[in-house]
Structures are given as structure tokens and as C-alpha cells.
């Protein structure tokens, strides 16, 4: 069963997690252990419950059954340790506010009630914008950003949270090549800094290149582990139910480049 609080507790532990929207199970009896310091992709077909899984870990959706532990504790006790990058389409980018303002929102949790962001928060936000290559956009109105820039602003907002665990929902969705490179670099920096990063990911082809850990999900957890062990044709076929084409032969370490059918 669940390990009680120890120094070795996994960053994320999920047990028997079931989530349903109106009678329909979106996640069914999911068990998951995410080890410290991994760069993990969650992949699976549309409607597999990828987004729901990270939202359930963050306590954003009601769960029917099951338990989530962050570093062995309930989320409410360790909130500061977790940062979230939502899908960029989840907010109204015509909201009247600036890039700097959005990034500073990442400090709101540490600030607590009523206290306003000041010089220190401003500096942290500017540093984070520097990291994502958006320093010059600090004063820009957010409606003037491209999709890739919006994504980088959201990443910067998570960076200023200075968390230990990062949960990201489709950060590569519809971004330009520059942004994709920036994000990949950023993910690696986070891993080198000992952070644990979980990314909902759509593009199977880039999984072996970008990530070292992967969870295959289709309502149930199909498999979870190191990419070389889990990202195999057999397990992928089971995840995608046969709607999948493989490009070329599996390479030496057994991983494959694959394209899922029916994806956008």
C-alpha cells in the first residue's frame, strides 16, 4: 500500500484512481509511481484521460475513488512543491493584462492573501522570462502574443513558482520550432536541477528524443517506466488499439518511431 511519509517517497504516487464524467469512466483504477528526477511523458489516444490524470493529481477534478500523494503527503500540505502549466487554450488571451503580470501570478501562492507582488516578484518574473527568451516582451499586452509565445509565458509563470514537481498539459501543442527548442532545453534544465517533470504529450515521434520516462494511458494505465522498456510497438499497439502506424524498424534499444492514427 501507500508508503507513509519518508524521505524516499516518490514525488507522485497515485493509487486506484478512478475519475468519471457523468457515468462515463475517464480514468479507471490507475496506479502510478513517478520517481524523482525523471522527465516523463504521458501519452495515449484522444480521450484517454491524459489531461484528467494531471488535473486529478492537482485536485482540480473530483475523483470517484483513489488516492493521490505528493512526496508521500496530501497535496494540500505540499502545494508549494507543485507547479502547473495548463493548456494555453484554457484562458482568454484577450484579458487586459501584461506578460509580466501573468508571470508574477506564479508568485501569488507564496505571497498568500492580500499581499501584492513587489520588487522581488517582479525580478523573479523577469528572470523567468529571460529563461524562456521572452525578456523583451515583459511589458507586452498578452493579446499580442503568438501561440508559442503564450506557451512560453505560461512556462515562465510555472518557473517562478520554483517548485520541485512540474505538471504540464500539452506544452508542445501548436507551437513554432523556436518555442519547441526552448521548451525542450527548459525541460532538460529542470531535470538537471533535480526536478520531476510530467508532460502530457501528443507527438509519439519525439517521445524517445525528449523524455526518459513514459506512461502509456488509455483510460487504464497500460504501462509506465523507462522509455526503452515501455515505448515498444507491442505496448503502443495495446494503448492505441491497433490504430497506429510504425515508421521504420525498431532501433537497437527497442524503441520505435510511431505515428498514431486518428490524431490531429
Amino acid at each position: 500500500m501507500l508508503a507513509t511519509t519518508t524521505a524516499t517517497a516518490h514525488p507522485i504516487t497515485v493509487r486506484d484512481l478512478t475519475v468519471a464524467y457523468h457515468d462515463r469512466a475517464v480514468l479507471w483504477d490507475v496506479d502510478l509511481d513517478v520517481p524523482r528526477g525523471v522527465l516523463m511523458a504521458i501519452v495515449g489516444p484522444n480521450g484517454a484521460g491524459k489531461t484528467t490524470l494531471i488535473k486529478a493529481i492537482l485536485g482540480l477534478v473530483p475523483v470517484v475513488a483513489g488516492q493521490v500523494r505528493i512526496e508521500g503527503k496530501p497535496l494540500a500540505e505540499v502545494r508549494r512543491r507543485v507547479a502547473y502549466v495548463p493548456q494555453r487554450g484554457s484562458v482568454d488571451w484577450d484579458f487586459p493584462t501584461s506578460v509580466l503580470d501573468v508571470v508574477m501570478m506564479g508568485r501569488y501562492g507564496a505571497l498568500g492573501w492580500i499581499r501584492r507582488p513587489g520588487h522581488r516578484e517582479r525580478q523573479a518574473a523577469l528572470d523567468a522570462l529571460e529563461q524562456v527568451g521572452m525578456r523583451d516582451f515583459a511589458g507586452r499586452q498578452i493579446s499580442q502574443l503568438s501561440g508559442g509565445q503564450q506557451q512560453r509565458v505560461f512556462l515562465a509563470r510555472a518557473l517562478v513558482q520554483d517548485a520541485a514537481i512540474y505538471l504540464m498539459d500539452e506544452p508542445f501543442q501548436g507551437v513554432d520550432a523556436t518555442t519547441e527548442r526552448t521548451i525542450v532545453g527548459l525541460l532538460r534544465d529542470l531535470r538537471s536541477a533535480g526536478k520531476t517533470v510530467v508532460v502530457v504529450h501528443h507527438d509519439l515521434q519525439t517521445v524517445p528524443e525528449y523524455f526518459d520516462w513514459v506512461t502509456l494511458l488509455n483510460v487504464r494505465k497500460i504501462a509506465s517506466g523507462p522509455v526503452e522498456e515501455v515505448f515498444t510497438p507491442e505496448l503502443l499497439r495495446r494503448t492505441y488499439g491497433g490504430h497506429i502506424a510504425f515508421l521504420g524498424q525498431p532501433d537497437q534499444d527497442g524503441t520505435v518511431a510511431a505515428v498514431a492514427g486518428g490524431e490531429e
Binding site: 488535473k55 492537482l58 485536485g59 482540480l60 494540500a76 502545494r79 507543485v82 507547479a83 502547473y84 495548463p86 484554457s90 484562458v91 482568454d92 484579458f95 493584462t97 501573468v102 501570478m105 501569488y108 501562492g109 509563470r157
Partner: peptide
Amino acid sequence: SFDPEFGSTLGF
């Protein structure tokens, strides 16, 4: 007003 879900993850 801008991002209630994110606000919720911050503990508000």
C-alpha cells in the same frame, strides 16, 4: 478572472 484553475492549484 484570468485563470481560476491555476489559482486553485496555488491553494486559493
